[in-house]
Simulated assay, not measured.
Amino acid sequence: MKVLLYFEGEKLLAKSGIGRALAHQQRALTSVGIPFTLDKNDEDYDILHINTYGINSMHMVNKAKRQGKKVIYHAHSTEEDFRNSFIGSNQLSPLYKKYLINLYSRADQLITPTPYSKELLEGYGIQVPIEAISNGIDLDKYQPDHEKEKAFREYFQLLPDQKVIISVGLFFERKGILDFVEIARQLPEYTFIWFGHTPMMTIPKQIRDLVNEDHPENVLFPGYIKGDIIEGAYSAADLFFFPSYEETEGIVVLEALASHQNVLVRDIPVYKGWLSNGHNAYMEKTNQGFIEKIKGIVDGTLPQLSEAGYETAKQKSIDEIGYELKEVYTKVMNTE
C-alpha cells in the first residue's frame, strides 16, 4: 500500500493550519511504516490522500478515479469556517459549500479532524463514509526549552516580570482578532502578541486597519514566525488565548497544550469531547468573561491546568494518529 499525499498550493498554505496538517501526515505515516509520495507525477500509488480544494485538486481526484485508485479527501474546510475570513467570503459561502459537497462526494472516504466537523459534513447530506481523526501534534517539538524561551523573550525585549498573552492565527474576523484587540485595550498591564500573517489585500479594511495601526501599544503583530521564537513563546508566555468563533479543530490549540501552557478558548462546539472547562482548559463566551479568566490565570488566582492539557495533547500525538490513518487506509483498500 502506497499513498500519494497531494497538497495544492503548498507554499501559499504553508503558514496555515492545513499546511501543518500535511507535515503531520508525513510524520504519522512514517511512524507506522506506510510508504508515501508527494510527487503528483508518481502514478505508482494506491490511495490518493488529498488535502486541498483548487482546480488542480479536482483534476487529481478525477484522474485517480479514472485509474481505479482509491481517494481519501481530508476535509479540513467547511462552509462555516470559510465565513468571516477573506473579502467576500460571506457572499461566496453558499457556493463554496456546494463546491465542497461536489468535491467531497467524489471520494471513497472522508477524514475530518473532529466529531464536530464530521457532524457538519453529515448535515450537508454527503453519503461518503466519514472518520474523525485529529490532525495530531508533534509532542517533542513543543516541549518547554529554556533556550527557546530565552530567544522569545529577547526577540520581543520582554522584562522579567512582564506578563504576556499570545495567540496564533490568520488575520480573520472568525479567529476572534477583533475581540483579542478589544480585550487587550482593557488590560493595558499585559502584553498581547498575535502571531500569524495574511496577505493584506485579501482581508477586509477593518482588519487591515486593526493590524496596521488601530490597536493599543500593548498589542504586537510580529507576523508569521516559526522555529525557536514561536516554540519558545508557546511555553514561556503566561497564557495562550484563542478566541476563535469557528474551527474544524484548531492545530494551534494542540500546540499550546503540547507546550504545557494554560489555554483559554471560546466555548464553541468543536471542543466538545476533548476540552473541558476548568479541567484541561478554560472556556468563555463573552469578552467580560475572557477578561476575568485572563486576570485569574495570569495572576495565579485560578488553578493551573497546563498538565491536564498536556495529557490531552498526548492522546493526539502523531504516533497515535499514524495508527488511526493506517486503519482507515486498510479499510478503504479492502472496500470494493
Results as ranks from 00 to 15, higher is better:
Tyr155Trp: 08
Tyr271Arg: 00
Pro216Leu: 06
Gly68Asp: 08
Asp46Val: 04
Asn334Ser: 15
Leu22His: 15
Val211His: 10
Asn56Ala: 06
Ile193Ala: 01
Asp209Val: 02
Leu92Val: 05
Gly123Cys: 07
Arg83Asp: 06
Ile177Phe: 04
Ile133Ser: 03
Ile268Asp: 13
Glu43Val: 05
Lys11Arg: 14
Phe152Asn: 09
Tyr53Ser: 12
Lys70Arg: 15
Ile229Asn: 03
Arg266Lys: 15
Val164Cys: 04
Phe171Pro: 00
Glu149Val: 05
Leu220Gln: 13
His24Val: 05
Pro222Phe: 10
Asp238Trp: 03
Lys97Met: 12
Thr37Gln: 02
Leu178Trp: 02
Pro94Asn: 10
Gly19Ala: 00
Val181Thr: 11
Lys70Trp: 11
Ala64Lys: 01
Asp42Thr: 04
Lys15Gln: 09
Ala14Met: 08
Ile133Glu: 04
Ser31Phe: 06
Phe192Cys: 03
Ser235Phe: 12
Val332Asp: 12
Asp228Pro: 05
Asn262Cys: 08
Val270His: 01
Gln304Leu: 06
Phe36Lys: 03
Asn41Cys: 07
Thr114Pro: 00
Glu119Gln: 14
Tyr245Gln: 12
Ile165Pro: 07
Tyr73Phe: 15
Phe171Thr: 02
Glu249Asp: 10
Pro144Gly: 02
Glu122Lys: 12
Phe82Gln: 04
Leu305His: 05
Leu48Cys: 07
Pro144Glu: 07
Phe7Met: 07
Leu38Trp: 11
Phe82Gly: 02
His49Thr: 05
Phe172Gln: 04
Phe7Thr: 04
Gln315Asn: 13
Glu307Leu: 14
Glu320Ser: 09
Thr112Asp: 10
His197Ala: 11
Ile87Arg: 10
Val211Trp: 09
Thr198Lys: 02
Pro160Ala: 13
Ile137Ser: 00
Gly33Thr: 00
Asn102Phe: 13
Val219Phe: 11
Gly322Leu: 03
Leu325Thr: 04
Glu79Val: 05
Glu255Asn: 00
Gly322Phe: 01
Gly250His: 02
